[in-house]
Write a protein that binds this DNA or RNA. Structure first.
Length: 266
DNA sequence: TCTTTATGGTGAG
DNA sequence: TCACCCTAAAGAT
């Protein structure tokens, strides 16, 4: 379930276990044996996220780079590895409980040197969840794009961390047709879009799930209490009535991925 | 118990 | 544009 909020939440949770700690690394599945052996026994400085990319920095300069892709998972696990565990990280220290984190099905899992973070992030746009995420950089990058705004929002070199759910939801909330050429959107509207991304992704990190619906819209006391079936405005809701105007939500393709919109509100 | 689908991205053609 | 990667939840049977 990985859009940017998932990766930032993972970095936060992994830091709680591993920051400034010695790490045991292994590859029960065997596909990452050399990399795990290289990291085994090293001290982790910290985990860091940029968009959908996760890094672990080690004190000798080594860097672990993980990208979950569509189906990857990185979770706390029990004593015995289950299934194809690419990488297991363990914190095992006298005086504290042994903790395992298991990585399965990642699109990327590699180890490199100190330049790895820079090499990867040089290709990425600003990340609305990072302190260095720059709104003007976002505006400039979008305005260089002639593709539809719905495609531009999925382009990680324009804005890092947005996926197929958030792009559909943001464009609904702002009343923008996904097919509008990116370079035709007003700068003020792009700034509003960035601020919405900051606010929404922060909520995603806090709740550890994507909830874009305004609680007031459905009479809920707060975002946390919104049930999963009511947490989104348009994503995967084709045929269902728009929560604002009851027009049936439509599904079509934008930028090679499925998109949903309310043709009345957008 | 089975089949389908997915919040992603790359690389071949 | 499409096959592919190859996990696991959700849906179909």
């Amino acid at each position: 379930m990985p859009e940017g909020h998932t990766i930032h939440r993972l970095a936060r949770d992994l830091n709680r276990t591993f920051r400034a700690k010695r790490v045991e690394a292994s590859s029960p599945q065997g596909r990452f044996e050399a990399g795990a052996a290289r990291l085994d026994g090293q001290r982790c400085c910290e985990f860091e996220a940029w968009g959908k990319h996760l890094f672990a920095l080690f004190d000798q300069g080594d860097v672990l780079h993980v990208h979950l892709g569509l189906i990857g998972k990185f979770r706390k696990a029990g004593e015995d590895p289950v299934g194809a565990v690419r990488l297991r990280l363990t914190h095992n220290e006298a005086g504290s409980k042994t903790t395992h984190w298991d990585l399965r099905g990642p699109m990327v899992c590699t180890v490199g040197g100190p330049d790895l973070v820079e090499d990867v992030t040089a290709k990425l746009g600003p990340d609305p969840l990072r302190k260095d995420g720059d709104i003007e950089e976002f505006v400039a990058r979008v305005r260089r794009k002639r593709v539809a705004i719905g495609a531009a929002l999925l382009d990680q070199s324009v804005i890092a961390g947005i996926g197929n759910v958030y792009r559909a939801e943001f464009l609904f909330i702002l009343g923008i047709d996904p097919r509008t050429p990116a370079n035709q959107i007003e700068e003020d509207d792009l700034r509003t879009l960035w601020k919405l991304a900051v606010e929404q992704l922060r909520r995603g990190v806090r709740l550890n799930r994507i909830v874009t619906v305004d609680p007031a819209d459905i009479g809920a006391p707060d975002a946390r209490s919104i049930p999963n079936t009511e947490r989104l405005y348009v994503y995967k809701r084709q045929g269902a009535p728009c929560r604002t105007c009851a027009t049936p939500i439509e599904e079509f393709d934008v930028g090679g991925r499925k998109m949903w919109e309310c043709t009345t509100c957008q």
